[in-house]
Simulated scan of single mutants.
Amino acid sequence: MTSRPFQQVDVFTATPYLGNPLAVVLDGSGLSTEQMLAFTHWTNLSEATFLLPPENPQADYRVRIFSPGRELPFAGHPTLGSCHAWLAAGGRPRGAHVVQECGIGLVRIQRDAASGRLAFAAPPLRKGGPLPEADVELIARGLGIARDDVAAHAWCDNGPNWRGVLLRSAEQVLALKPDAAVLAGLDVGVVGPRGKVGVAGPHAAGGDCAFEVRAFFPGNNGMVEDPVTGSLNAALAQWLIGAGLAPERYVAAQGTALGRAGRVHVAREGGETWIGGHAVTCIAGEVRL
Rank of each mutant, 00 (worst) to 15 (best):
D112H: 12
P93S: 12
G91I: 10
S82L: 09
G129L: 09
P132F: 01
L138V: 14
A114N: 07
D112C: 14
R108P: 00
G105L: 05
R111N: 02
R92I: 09
I104R: 00
E137P: 00
G91L: 05
R117D: 02
R117W: 04
P130V: 14
L118H: 07
R92N: 02
L106Q: 06
G142D: 07
G95I: 08
G142M: 12
R117K: 10
V98G: 00
G116Q: 05
P93D: 10
K127Y: 06
V98Y: 09
H84M: 03
P124A: 15
A134R: 12
A96M: 04
R141N: 04
P132E: 10
C83I: 15
E133M: 03
G103W: 01
V136N: 03
H97L: 12
A96K: 14
E101V: 10
C83L: 09
G128H: 04
R92H: 05
L143F: 13
P124T: 14
A121Y: 05
A134D: 13
A114R: 11
E101C: 07
G144Q: 13
E101M: 07
L118N: 05
E133C: 02
G129Y: 02
I139D: 03
I109T: 06
A96W: 01
H97V: 10
V107S: 04
W86K: 00
A113W: 01
A88Y: 08
W86Q: 02
A96D: 15
G95N: 13
R92D: 02
P93C: 11
R108A: 15
A140F: 14
A121H: 14
G144C: 12
V136E: 08
L138M: 15
G128R: 07
A140D: 12
R117P: 00
A85L: 11
A122D: 08
R141S: 10
A134Y: 03
I109S: 03
G129H: 02
A119M: 08
A89S: 08
W86C: 01
A140I: 11
V98C: 01
L125V: 11
G91E: 08
A96N: 12
E101I: 13
Q110G: 12
Q100K: 05
W86H: 03
P124Q: 09
G142R: 07
A121P: 00
E137R: 13
G95M: 03
K127A: 15
L138C: 12
D112T: 09
F120P: 06
G103Q: 03
G128A: 15
L138Y: 10
R108F: 09
P132G: 00
G91Y: 11
W86Y: 10
R126W: 12
R117N: 04
